[in-house]
C-alpha cells in the first residue's frame, strides 16, 4: 500500500493516535472478557467436585431435603463414619496404596530399562521389536481381557491376591514409549564417555542414565501411580472379597450393595479423589510437563 501524503500533518497525528487508543482499548476489553470466561469455566469444571464435597458432609435427611441445601446447614461426618465402619474404606485405601505403589515401581523400572535400550542402544531388530510393541497400543484392552483373566485366575491361581492385581500391569507399552521419548533427549556422548571411562553397560545405565533421567522417571512415576490408583476394571474382575477390594472397586459397592446411599458415595468419592488432588497440587509442574512428553508425534 502506498502511504498517502497528508494535507494537515497535525490532524493526521491526531487521527493515528485515536486509532492506536482504540486498538489498545479493544485489546484490554478482549483480555478482560477472556479472564472472566476462563474463571467461569474453571468454576464450572469444579462444580462436580464441590458438590461432592458439600454432599459428603450432609446427613441422610439433608441430602434429600426440599428445598435442597447447596451447602450443608449442619455439617456432619456421618457419611464418613459409615464408609469406614460398614464399608471397609481403610482396607481399600491400604490395598490401593500397596497395589499402586508396587505397580509404579515395577513399571518405571522396566520402562526405563526398555526405554533406554530402544532410544540409545543399537542392536539388530531394535526397530522391529519397538514397532511390534507400539502397534499393540492400538488394540483395545477388551480383546486381551478374557484370556488374561483365564490366565491369571485359572492358570496362575492368583484370583483375589495382590499378585493377581499387579501382575498384568507390570509392563506398559505406553510407559516404555514415554521413557524412550524422554531418554532420546539425553546426549549420547555421555554414554560414550562412560564406556571410555571403563563403566560397564549396566553401570552406565545405573550411574549415568538413571540420575539424568530423574525428571522423566518422576513424571512417569506420578502418572503411573495415579493411573493405577484410579484403575477400576481389572481389580473389579480379579477381587471377590471385600478385604481385597481396591478403593475404586469398593466405591461401586455403595452404588450396588447399599441402596443408593448418596452420602456414603460422596464421602467415598472424596476419599478417592482428594489424595490424587493433593498429589497433583504438590507435583503440579511434573504433571504439566509430562503430558507433552508422551504426545510427541513420531
Amino acid at each position: 500500500m502506498e502511504l498517502k501524503s497528508v494535507t494537515d500533518p497535525q490532524y493526521q497525528i491526531l487521527l493515528d493516535e485515536k486509532k492506536d487508543f482504540r486498538r489498545k482499548t479493544y485489546k484490554k476489553i478482549g483480555l478482560t472478557i477472556i479472564y472472566i470466561f476462563l474463571v467461569l469455566w474453571a468454576v464450572f469444571t469444579f462444580v462436580p467436585l464441590l458438590w461432592m464435597l458439600s454432599s459428603s458432609f450432609k446427613d441422610s435427611s439433608a441430602i434429600t431435603a426440599v428445598p435442597p441445601e447447596l451447602l450443608p446447614k449442619k455439617p456432619t461426618l456421618d457419611a464418613y463414619k459409615r464408609i469406614f465402619e460398614v464399608g471397609g474404606m481403610a482396607r481399600w485405601f491400604l490395598n490401593s496404596t500397596i497395589v499402586a505403589s508396587i505397580s509404579t515401581i515395577i513399571n518405571v523400572f522396566f520402562a526405563s530399562l526398555a526405554g533406554y535400550a530402544f532410544s540409545k542402544l543399537k542392536f539388530p531388530g531394535r526397530n522391529t521389536i519397538f514397532w511390534v510393541l507400539l502397534s499393540s497400543m492400538m488394540i483395545p484392552g477388551q480383546v486381551t481381557l478374557i484370556p488374561l483373566y483365564i490366565l491369571v485366575v485359572n492358570t496362575l491361581q492368583l484370583e483375589n491376591t495382590y499378585f493377581g492385581l499387579i501382575v498384568p500391569g507390570m509392563v506398559s507399552v505406553g510407559s516404555i514409549f514415554l521413557m524412550k521419548q524422554f531418554m532420546s533427549s539425553l546426549p549420547s556422548s555421555l554414554i560414550d564417555a562412560g564406556r571410555i571411562d571403563a563403566c560397564s553397560e549396566f553401570g552406565i545405565f545405573r550411574k549415568i542414565i538413571l540420575p539424568m533421567a530423574k525428571p522423566g522417571l518422576a513424571v512417569l512415576g506420578i502418572f503411573t501411580f495415579v493411573g493405577h490408583w484410579n484403575n477400576f476394571f481389572w481389580p473389579f474382575l480379579i477381587t471377590n472379597t471385600n478385604s481385597m477390594r481396591t478403593l475404586q472397586v469398593g466405591l461401586t459397592s455403595f452404588r450396588f450393595e447399599n441402596l443408593q446411599d448418596y452420602g456414603a458415595m460422596m464421602a467415598g468419592a472424596v476419599c478417592s479423589a482428594v489424595p490424587m488432588i493433593i498429589v497433583f497440587l504438590a507435583l503440579q509442574k511434573y504433571f504439566l510437563r509430562g503430558i507433552t512428553i508422551g504426545a510427541v508425534k513420531g
Binding site: T45, F46, P48, L49, W51, M52, V226, W229, N230, N231, F232, Q248, L251, T252, F254, R255, M265, M266, G268, A269, S272, A273, M276, I277, V279, F280, F287, L288, I291
Partner: peptide
Amino acid sequence: YLPAVTSGITMSLI
C-alpha cells in the same frame, strides 16, 4: 487439568 486426576468411577458416582 485438576478434574482429570479423579477416577472415572469417582466422577461417575458424582
